[in-house]
Structure formats: C-alpha cells, structure tokens
Design a protein around this nucleic acid. Structure first.
Lengths: 148, 148
DNA sequence: CCTATTTCTGGAATCAATCAAGTTTAAATT
DNA sequence: AATTTAAACTTGATTGATTCCAGAAATAGG
C-alpha cells in the first residue's frame, strides 16, 4: 500500500502530471485489486468529494497507456483494472460471482507462448484466464449468482 | 459446410426446435467463423429477408447454452461466435485489425490447466488468447488500424 | 386438426464507454 | 511571483451493444 509520496513518484516516473484525480484513482486501484470502473469512480469520489466520470476514464486510460495499470476484461464482465503489472501473471475468474484472483505463471518462464500453428501471426503475448468457482461459491452450492 | 438437413439434425439433436431464424444463424456461423453479432444479424437478414435483432440474440444464447456454438469476447472486441466446439482450441487475435484465427492446443492434452496457486478455486477451463499481428497487418506496416 | 409451449416481433430501456466544447490547473518560463 | 501553455478536468450529450417487455406467430405433440 504505497504512501501519497510514493504514488506521486510513480506518476512522475511515468511522465504524468500529479493531479488529485490521478492520486485518488491510483490509490483506489492499490486498495481494490481488480476493481471495475464503477467501483473506482465511487472510491475516488469518497476520497475527493467529487470527480467526473469522464476524468476517471481519462485517468485510467492514461495510466494504462503508461503501463502503470493493466486493463483486464473477462467475458461477461465489465472492464477491470489492476496495478500489478510486468510480472506476467494470469487470472482465475469465478463463474458464479465474477470474483478474480491472481495466479502466477503456470509452467516455467514463458508458458503457453508456443502456439502450435501461428497462422503467420506475430505473437507477442499469451493471455490465460482460468474459469471455475471461488471457494465462497462452492460453499454456496450449485446455484449460480445472477451477477455471474 | 453442413447442408440444410444436417443443420436441422444438429438443432434437433440439441433438443431445439427447428425454425428459420435458427437455421439462418447456424448457417451464417458455419459460413463466417468468429463473426460478431452484427455480422450475424446481417447475414441472417440476407438469408431470410428479415429477422428481428432480438431473435438473433435469443438464438445465439440458445445455441450457446446447448453447446452448439461458443461465445468468445476478446478484450476490446464485441462478442463473437464460432461453431467449432468441444476440441479445446484457442485463439490468436490481431491487435491491429481484430482478426481471429484458431490455434490448436499448445502443449499436450490439457496445457496450462495447472494453475500454480488456485486460491481454492475449482478450475474447469483454461482459456488462452494469443495477441499479436496478423500477416496482413504486418505487411501494412507499423500503424495500427483504428478498428483494433 | 387443435392446443400448449416456445419462439419471434417491435419498441423501448439500460449501461458502459466515448465524444465534444469549454474551463481549470499543473508546471515550465520570464 | 506573475505569465504562459499544454495537459487535464467538467458538463452534457451520444453512441452502440445488449437486454427487457408484452403481444403475435409458429412449432411440435396429442
């Protein structure tokens, strides 16, 4: 959980101006990994009093462009963001409640990066999403939540 | 490319009533792998004269539920559908134009299915998306199309 | 042929995301 | 410290995929 000063350094290090919305969004992302845009807007407003939805979208895009955050969008879910970048990890997504957890790379250094037939594509990334059920939903029983 | 009779058998085999919209959608999917909903609607209309958008959505959902088609939604793209199901293959997506191609499973029978730390999740599927550039876009040069 | 259930139509509503024009502000400059 | 300027933020409207709803139509079984 970075301090305000650290967040500021992170922004400056990426050649981004230090503004209140950016600080708030970055803090919210560190506090809530895998948060969707709506949650981030809410968190930022609790922090700042008020911010426009547009500002949050702009900030998220700027942060993503500079590689400070990573945008993930599992099927059936809206866009989510996380601050853990650069370590090539993957995600497990719960089919019932949509919960997301991080998973380290499965096998060795660059797993799955060898597509058997690449069709001439120049591949630069292999994205892996594991689908299943989180511990809570396993307990909850067979019925899937409507928010799947 | 299945015949009309074969399509009919496919539908009946899945306990689905045989209707004109369903035949048209299924045919469109076989003709255009990885088509998005809009294209499917268009193709179905060329075939039938007219169909409601809603009907196509309903059909796609019904077909997906019965496992006749598979819904895929790469980040930044709208939902797409394919008829190739049950063989656990993956996809390569072009970052520039969004083109999609099929890729057979990378390593052995159930590759990447071993998440190193599953966080208690009960995993039933590993979805892999390879990102890169298709042959056409490599030729086209460095500039990415806006339809990425 | 008739009935019941499923499917399709038409139109409206929802919601994430984007666009546009104008105002404010961070940070470099004098 | 005042000035400048490009980047960032605000408000308000718009897009576009997807879904909801109520009623009409059509399929499949009796």
């Amino acid at each position: 959980m970075p301090t305000a000063v650290e967040l500021e350094e992170i922004l400056r290090g990426a050649d981004l101006r230090v503004t209140r919305p950016r600080m708030a969004v970055l803090a919210a992302l560190h506090a809530h990994p895998h948060a969707d845009t709506g949650s981030i807007v809410t968190a930022a407003r609790e922090d700042l009093g008020r911010v426009s939805t547009q500002a949050v979208y702009d900030v998220l895009q700027a942060l993503t462009e500079r590689g400070l955050v990573r945008r993930i969008e599992p099927s059936g879910s809206v866009a989510r963001y996380e601050t853990r970048v650069g370590d090539n990890h993957h995600h497990v997504v719960c089919r019932s409640c949509g919960a997301i957890a991080d998973v380290a790379c499965a096998v060795g250094p660059a797993p799955c990066l060898e597509a058997s037939e690449s069709h001439g594509f120049e591949i630069d990334e292999a994205e892996v999403v594991y689908w299943g059920r989180c511990p809570d939903c396993q307990i909850a029983g067979g019925l899937a939540a409507t928010t799947a």
